[in-house]
Structures are given as structure tokens and as C-alpha cells.
Amino acid sequence: MAADSRLRVKSIEGVTQVEFIDRNILDEANIQAIGDEISELIEQADTPNLLLSFSNVDHLSSAALGALITINNKVKAKGGALRLANIDPQIYEVFMITRLNKLFEIHETTDDALKAFA
């Protein structure tokens, strides 16, 4: 992973757990960098099981939602699974307004999400 990584990544029992470091996932350069890093993780895995934790994230934009959709499409294309967790209530409302809570599998905590992979 690059030295200026915007992600904390660890693997637990076949699940790649990714935590965003940034509080704001708003601007295109930041989102592009995050998307590229996660795409690399997906490419490296035979069957990507990916858990994204939003515990540090206070703000995200529609461009960030777009990047998450692209990540979801890439994971699905490889027969993997994507789960999201630790989403702040204000940000969860963004998912509800856009109905993306129907597209993504969202769990309250990373523990809940990890159990769902089992």
C-alpha cells in the first residue's frame, strides 16, 4: 500500500477490512485515490470479501457514493461480497435518501458485518 494511503487495511479470516482515515470523503482527487486503492485490493483477491468501515467519516458527497457503487460492481463481478459498517446516522440518511441502503448491505458494527460473512 502506498505511503500516503488514505485507508487502514487488515485481513481477518478471509475478509479484507478497510477503514477510511479521512473525515471528509468529498473531493474528486481524494475519492479517486480511495477508489484506486480499493480497486487494487479487489484485483488482488480471487473472491473479494470486502468490509468498509466508516467510523471516522463525518461527510461524504454524491461522488463518493458513485465510487462506492463502482467498488460494489467490481466486487460483484468477481463473485465477492461488499458490506458497509459503522455509518454515522447523518450519513446513513444520505444512503436512505438516495435509496442506496437497498443496494448496499449495511451493518451497524464491523462485528455484525464480519459475522454476516461467515
Binding site: S61, S62, L65, G66, A67, I69, T70, N72, N73, V94, I97, T98, R99, L100, K102, L103
Partner: peptide, 21 residues
């Protein structure tokens, strides 16, 4: 409308609806 089932997986088109919301 990005909230229609057929548009949910499109990566763009949500900016205006978020502003309106």
C-alpha cells in the same frame, strides 16, 4: 431519477437530488 430501481447501480446523478433533499 437515481432512486428508481433501474438506476440504483448507476454511479452518478445524485447531486441534484441531494441538494433538493
Amino acid at each position: 431519477d437515481p432512486t428508481l430501481d433501474e438506476n440504483l447501480a448507476l454511479p452518478s446523478g445524485r447531486g441534484i437530488m441531494l441538494m433538493r433533499a
